[in-house]
């Protein structure tokens, strides 16, 4: 089972313009896939379409054999709650809730707040947030917030993790930390990870890369450090199997 996109397109705006068109691709289970491309090339749009947050204008997305377009709102909610985790460029934490409460929000929806509490503390500890569980978001640093957001996305042990520029608002060190975490949960827990990034160095941490250009799929499986962003000189996190495909 996997995520399969069949010639999907997205039209947006007034007058409508094709932001994405004719994208066909497959995300295999347990894969760590990165999506790269210039700003405005449609990376975020593609991620939202693949992750059920947005609806396609043409084509179809199928997840585990189910057509997203045919799912009811209830099924979508259940699917997002149980199978999907999201990490965004901005952490989107609830400012009124403490760190641990934020992490447990998806579990609260599922009615499993108590049973997952221990796991939530494990995650906090793993991400270097031990002892900060009762802090409010405004009492944490940017890197801590993003790690907290990742902890929240993992609390339900989702099958899929979608990350839209998770390192976008972080400095290099924190960015590396975050990509390392994504890499680790992919390898250790078998979580399928889709990460959008415009940093080719981080993209190289993935098993496979997809490149978007003007809303279309460019050449896939680009190798690390081809041309982009002047980051070619730096290698990123210990990514042992740089491009295993």
């Amino acid at each position: 089972m996997a995520i399969i996109a069949r010639s999907i397109g997205k039209r947006l705006g007034e007058p409508p313009s094709d932001i994405l068109s004719g994208v066909s691709m497959e995300v295999r289970d347990r894969e760590f896939l990165s999506i790269t491309g210039r700003s405005g090339s449609g990376k975020s749009t593609l991620l939202y379409l693949l992750s059920s947050l947005d609806t396609v204008s043409s084509g179809a997305v199928e997840i585990d054999g189910q057509d997203l377009g045919a799912m009811s709102p209830e099924e979508l909610c259940f699917f997002r709650n149980r199978q999907v985790g999201f990490v965004f460029q901005f952490h989107y934490l609830l400012s009124e809730l403490s760190a641990i409460e934020n992490v447990l929000m998806p579990a609260r929806k599922a009615g499993e707040e108590e049973t997952r509490r221990a796991y939530a503390f494990n995650l906090l500890e793993e991400f270097g947030l031990a002892g900060k569980s009762d802090r409010l978001p405004r009492e944490l640093s940017g890197g801590e917030l993003q790690r907290l957001a990742i902890a929240r996305s993992l609390i339900m042990r989702p099958k899929y993790l979608f990350a839209d520029e998770p390192t976008g608002s972080l400095d290099t060190a924190n960015g590396e930390l975050v990509v390392g975490i994504l890499r680790r949960i992919n390898q250790r827990d078998g979580t399928t990870v889709l990460m959008v990034t415009h940093d080719s160095g981080f993209a190289a941490a993935a098993d496979r890369q997809i490149r978007l250009a003007d809303g279309r799929l460019g050449e896939a499986d680009t190798s690390v450090g081809a041309s982009a962003n002047g980051r070619t000189d730096r290698s990123v996190a210990p990514h042992d199997r740089g491009g295993s495909l």
Partner: peptide, 16 residues
Amino acid sequence: RRDIAILRSMGYSTRD
């Protein structure tokens, strides 16, 4: 608005 969006992405429904 952001809280609403993130809650929805976690699986909270319109009704919630």
